[in-house]
Design a protein around this nucleic acid. Structure first.
Lengths: 348, 348
DNA sequence: CTGAAAGCGCTAACAC
DNA sequence: GTGTTAGCGCTTTCAG
């Protein structure tokens, strides 16, 4: 089927009895081309149903106007919002985005990085797989001078641009909030400690405790390699069924915070009176759970937008060789799950 | 910066004193090339840090091994899961996926379609913008023989492949379920009626009522052009505060079903005793809300996977000119929000 | 303001 | 089993 060749600039050129280069220039509105020529070319292009072939232009120009994205998996609220932000900003600047999922496996991350490189993407945005501890597969990009930027789950070891939130401060805020609400024994559900995000949230937690003269108890800290609802529920069950149970919990994501609340309900523990809970991310589930979940609002969409902007900016100004690290502010969103002092909260 | 030219097959060829075509064939493991040659070429390629340039191959081969996706917006649970399925299947088959968001605007959908076409994608998967009623911007693809497939929010008017769920039957099941639970006055929150998904869910609702000898009351049907939490809440407030209020509601998505439950709580209406509620999609919020929400489980991930498979299959067998329509089964998930007969439910 | 010509990197007839 | 050659469609020096 389909043997009707594409119409190219050559077709336009010969119909108009001008040269392909003129056509090319006209289509790109090159300044040195006369108005009437531009008009004639455009009309003819329309008439012939001409469609620019970006692939050819890409080869010639040595750039693809495409950026790559590697994320763990798109069907997580935070990630979906993040790449939504990336896409909209990239498109605004005339870039396509190819996205790939690592499913938190280093092996897939490596494979994706290679495929994307071979596709000659103009830049790469990565949120690291949970599993990854070696970053050599990204050296390809740094060595060839292809802009590389990490977002959220990052590593500083490659000296690239980074877009993150202030996890330490966020963890600090969350914990301090629980302390201010009168909690005395505050537990923490942490994520994998080789990921800075989770390490820093924990650090913030510890800082807040120390600052308020509360001893850090290892028993109150649970590291969950996967912050899933199931694992969160199990951990909550273990933590809450002991006799000297905590009266406050700060979890590294909302999913596990919801599990904590559900577990508390099951055990007949009142939230927030007997157990104050605060999560992380401000996923939509946090407003659905009863009582509504206090949390740290994560500016995911903005983060995506800034990551894309930063990456593309780097393309334009490669002379700025410094690795910028953009640290976004977060906000504490107080809802009923941590409101032990009866503060009147506005509705969401 | 970066002036060190890429290493190409020519570099490998001249180092090895063989021809570029042999190198090309060796790298692609062409059958007519000797084992030792292949080995030599591979070793040299590795040594020189050779990286295949897909852009060049794409131009030459007239195919990009890339598919395009146009969806409304990625930060909706159902959509995120859908494109997750698309990506994983596409990658398994060696294809990249460029995704773009229409934000439910026809204008952006058109723009995205054009950009994707110019990028010479090998196929396109579309879930239509809420707004779209004219489909001419997709003719480009059908006319040029580029595989085009609609998923979920589809149109039959272009005679393309379709992957959908059985919305009519799903709506029927949901409504019948409410009837079986003893509901007498059943309301329906529908979506935009020019989208088949919503029209058919409504049709299923009406079928079920008719089948059970229940009159269809226009007053009990609300069409929400945007099925958002806010609009759902407003509609629920209007519906539930009248004196002759319904005792069952079937909504076209989970978001508005949750709004209904929240509104009912606010008004002191007991769910499910005084009002049974069933939603659509089986988003994660449906297990979080109290009482847990009955819903129709939407096989989003499978749908994405099948859409990608179907699309790429079409590429391989273009002779199959018939437009296939794949209709996936859905399941009713019964939870407490519609359980008026006190059935014992297993935990999720 | 416009044209001629080369080339981006790769592949595939068509030779041998 | 391997080499020669042309060309995918576009852009861009360089020349006029």
């Amino acid at each position: 089927m389909k043997k009707n060749k594409e119409t190219t600039i050559y077709d336009i050129a010969s119909e108009l009895k001008i040269s392909p280069s003129t056509v090319s220039r006209a289509l790109n509105k090159h300044k040195s081309i006369g108005k009437k020529t531009i008009k004639r070319v455009q009309d003819k292009a329309l008439q012939l149903g001409y469609r620019p072939n970006h692939v050819a232009a890409n080869l010639r120009n040595q750039k693809t106007h495409t950026i790559g994205v590697i994320i763990s998996r798109v069907d997580r609220p935070f990630i979906a919002t993040l790449i939504g932000g990336i896409e909209s900003e990239a498109k605004k600047q005339g870039y396509n985005v190819i996205f790939t999922q690592s499913y938190d496996k280093t092996e897939l991350e490596i494979e994706n990085a290679n495929v994307l490189f071979n596709s000659r993407i103009d830049g790469l945005i990565v949120s690291l797989a949970m599993e990854t501890t070696n970053y050599d597969h990204f050296k390809l990009f740094t060595e060839k001078g292809i802009p590389l930027l990490f977002v959220d789950r990052v590593t500083e070891s490659l000296n690239t641009d980074l877009v993150v939130i202030d996890n330490t401060h966020s963890g600090y805020m969350a914990t301090k909030h629980l302390i201010e609400q009168g909690c005395k024994r505050i537990a923490h559900f942490a994520g994998a400690q080789h990921r800075d995000v989770y390490k820093n949230r924990r650090k913030g937690y510890e800082n807040a405790l120390l600052e308020h003269g509360i001893e850090i108890e290892e028993d109150l800290i649970v590291v969950l390699d996967i912050l899933s609802a199931e694992d969160g529920y199990k951990a909550a069950m273990g933590m809450l069924s002991q006799e000297n149970r905590p009266d406050g919990i700060f979890t590294s994501n909302d999913t596990t915070a919801v599990s904590v609340i559900q577990c508390a309900k099951k055990l007949g523990i009142k939230v927030p009176e007997e157990l104050a809970v605060i999560g992380f991310n401000n996923d939509s589930i946090s407003t659905i759970i009863d009582p509504p979940l206090s949390t740290i609002d994560h500016p995911a969409a903005q983060m995506g937008k800034i990551a894309a902007r930063q990456l593309l900016n780097k393309k334009i100004h490669p002379e700025i060789d410094s690795s910028n690290i953009v640290k976004l502010k977060t906000n504490l969103v107080m809802r009923a799950s941590s409101n032990r002092l009866g503060k009147i909260l506005s509705e969401d």
